[in-house]
């Protein structure tokens, strides 16, 4: 049995963040019957507190301050440290996000604890244990730690989201936080200069474009404009999120023709992102190991490539279509548009 704290910065509107209810389930597993407290921080946390009603939470600790509206290391670290200390918890669980990832290790250090991130699984057999990835999703280890407090950043999908089962709203305790005078000002969010938002984390489909799109085609010439039209058309028609191989986004740095709507943010793989989507479709991409490690969380995988011996053929995709992606995509776009129209 462990004292476990779920730590979550709330959304801008005060709501519980995505992943908090999954993390709460994970916290419960780790608590193995022990009490689970929740700590919320933000400018205003009211809606999140309400959302915790009926979830069997022992207590909600709250740090509210206008300075906590945006994720910023100095203020988040101060607040999270105060909350973790106030809870006295042995294990601190937080849903992984850019905001928690920025600050969790610093909090662990401040409370004299240890941290593990990218936690994919939790269990409590013989004491709290977690499974996490090493070497960029290529090796998975299950481990325990002797030290406490133990801070854990849990990945999406670590456990099913906790569901309310009725019962009273948990008691709320406000924790005083001394936020240091800021040296950093968060000025806002900026979307990539390309204008079109191509990264869609909620999409059902990841569409990956590889360097083959810019290579010479059957007529001996490259057709980047046509490729760009086909890819953009597909993204619009399908609502897919756009990923890229490293070699394609690297071409920008090499001064070659590259798609204006694509940047290193789109890169999937060893040195890029590891997005989560139910399905993935790779086109004109060789499916080499460094790229495919970024597909760890793509459940169903299909690929279109002219090379029947490409990496996808070797157990990396469920289906490989040996075909010209230009021709296939053109027809897919037509079918998708027709569907929409009909």
């Amino acid at each position: 049995m462990e004292d476990v704290l779920l730590l979550a910065p709330v959304e801008l509107d005060g709501a519980l963040p995505k992943g908090a209810l999954e993390a709460l389930s994970a916290a419960r597993v780790l608590a193995a019957g022990g009490p689970v407290q929740v700590a919320l921080l933000g400018a205003s946390v009211g809606p999140a507190v309400q959302a915790l009603a009926g979830l069997g939470v022992a207590k909600v600790l709250v740090a509210e301050d206008p300075a906590l509206a945006d994720g910023r290391y100095a203020s988040d670290a101060a607040a999270a440290t105060a909350l973790a200390k106030a809870s006295g918890a042995a294990v601190v669980v937080a849903p992984a996000s850019s905001r928690t990832s920025r600050v969790a290790a610093g909090v662990a250090e401040r409370i004299g604890g240890r941290i593990d991130t990218h936690v994919a699984q939790v269990s409590a057999d013989g004491g709290a244990a977690v499974a996490r990835w090493y070497y960029k999703q290529r090796i998975e280890a299950k481990l325990r730690r002797k030290e406490r407090p133990w801070v854990l950043l849990v990945d999406p999908g670590v456990a099913p989201a906790a569901r309310a089962e009725g019962g009273a709203a948990p008691p709320v305790e406000r924790v005083a936080v001394s936020i240091p005078p800021p040296r950093t000002e968060v000025t806002g969010l900026r979307a990539p200069a390309s204008g079109e938002q191509t990264i869609r984390p909620e999409a059902r489909l990841l569409f990956v474009a590889g360097a083959g799109w810019t290579k010479k085609q059957a007529d001996g010439k490259p057709h980047p404009e046509r490729a760009e039209g086909l890819i953009r058309g597909f993204l619009r028609a399908s609502g897919a999120s756009l990923g890229s191989s490293k070699s394609l986004v690297d071409q920008a740095g090499e001064g070659q023709k590259v798609f204006a709507f694509m940047s290193h943010l789109n890169q999937v793989g060893q040195t890029g992102a590891t997005p989560r989507h139910p399905k993935g479709l790779a086109t004109c991409c060789h499916g080499e190991e460094p790229h495919v490690v970024g597909w760890r969380f793509i459940r169903e995988r299909r690929a279109v490539n002219l090379d029947p011996a490409c990496g996808w053929a070797r157990g990396k995709a469920d289906v490989l279509y040996v075909a010209d992606a230009f021709a296939v995509m053109e027809r897919m776009n037509a079918l998708l548009e027709a569907k929409k129209g009909g």
Binding site: K142, L143, V319
Partner: peptide, 21 residues
Amino acid sequence: AGVEFLSVAVPKAQRETRIVK
């Protein structure tokens, strides 16, 4: 340090690829 590794393994990632030629 205080880490006890219970298991360390390469996840099985091999799929049965259907190749449509």
